[in-house]
């Protein structure tokens, strides 16, 4: 566990040493801020529901940008060899990287608490769905980070890692909007695969174990995929 902390520290600090963190956070705040507040007053409702409904789509291109370097950079400069010949296991490495990515997502979400506070000034805000929304956002963020890690472990090219990660996250987000393409008997299963579907459940303020299990399974599958991809490289 100690090793996980050291790797987490290094990776998290790296985001703020390079310009990535600042660029990603600014883009994220700009896009969500604009899309949310430009229609906020038209609805004339004190709720953050529209903000949270934006997140799955925005996360699916922002998070791969956060995670693209985590393995690709190591593979590209060859530092992965140094890392693994120090007394750490692959589990330490991948958990440290996952947590660093999730912490970065949290750092990105933190300024949006200001939206909630602003909205709360305008009227009676129901905090239940807001808290649920943030919990859901972190869970979905973890799932997408794991997918991004998997994409990053496939290639030493960060751009390819970004595009692959984005493609997978996008499909997970949009799959339950594409249900009309599938035969009726599959609908239940495919609807269940959609990340958006589970996220919207949580962001209503209902925390159901099925949704949590879904996101944790995606995390596990992503990490396991990364494990297999890195093993293949040896």
């Amino acid at each position: 566990m100690r090793q996980v902390t050291h790797i987490f520290n290094k990776e998290f600090k790296d985001y703020f040493i390079s310009p990535i963190a600042y660029i990603v956070i600014s883009v994220f705040l700009l896009v969500t801020g604009w899309l949310f507040f430009s229609t906020f007053f038209l609805y004339n409702q004190v709720t953050l529901r529209n903000f949270f409904s934006l997140l799955p789509l925005i996360f699916s291109f922002v998070i791969p940008a956060i995670t693209m370097r985590l393995f690709s950079e190591e593979l590209n400069i060859g530092s992965y060899e140094i890392l693994l010949t120090m007394p750490v296991t692959f589990k330490d490495v991948i958990l440290g990287k996952l947590l660093a990515g999730v912490a970065m997502v949290a750092a990105m979400l933190l300024p949006t608490v200001a939206y909630a506070i602003t909205v709360a000034f305008l009227g009676e805000l129901d905090w239940g769905p807001v808290i649920g929304g943030y919990i859901g956002a972190i869970l979905m963020g973890s799932a997408y980070t794991a997918i991004g890690l998997f994409a990053s472990s496939l290639t030493r090219n960060q751009i390819i890692a970004f595009i692959v990660g984005m493609a997978i996250c996008f499909s997970l987000t949009l799959i339950d909007k594409m249900l009309f393409l599938f035969p009726g008997s599959f609908l239940g299963v495919i609807g269940y695969l959609g990340a958006d579907f589970h996220f919207q459940n949580i962001s209503k303020g209902i925390i159901d174990s099925r949704d949590i299990i879904y996101f944790l399974s995606v995390v596990f599958i992503g990490l396991y995929g990364a494990h297999l991809a890195m093993q293949e490289k040896e």
Partner: peptide, 14 residues
Amino acid sequence: LGYLPESAPLYHSM
């Protein structure tokens, strides 16, 4: 062990 791989691949940004 201490190990130095060929051409010292260290993290550039640090």
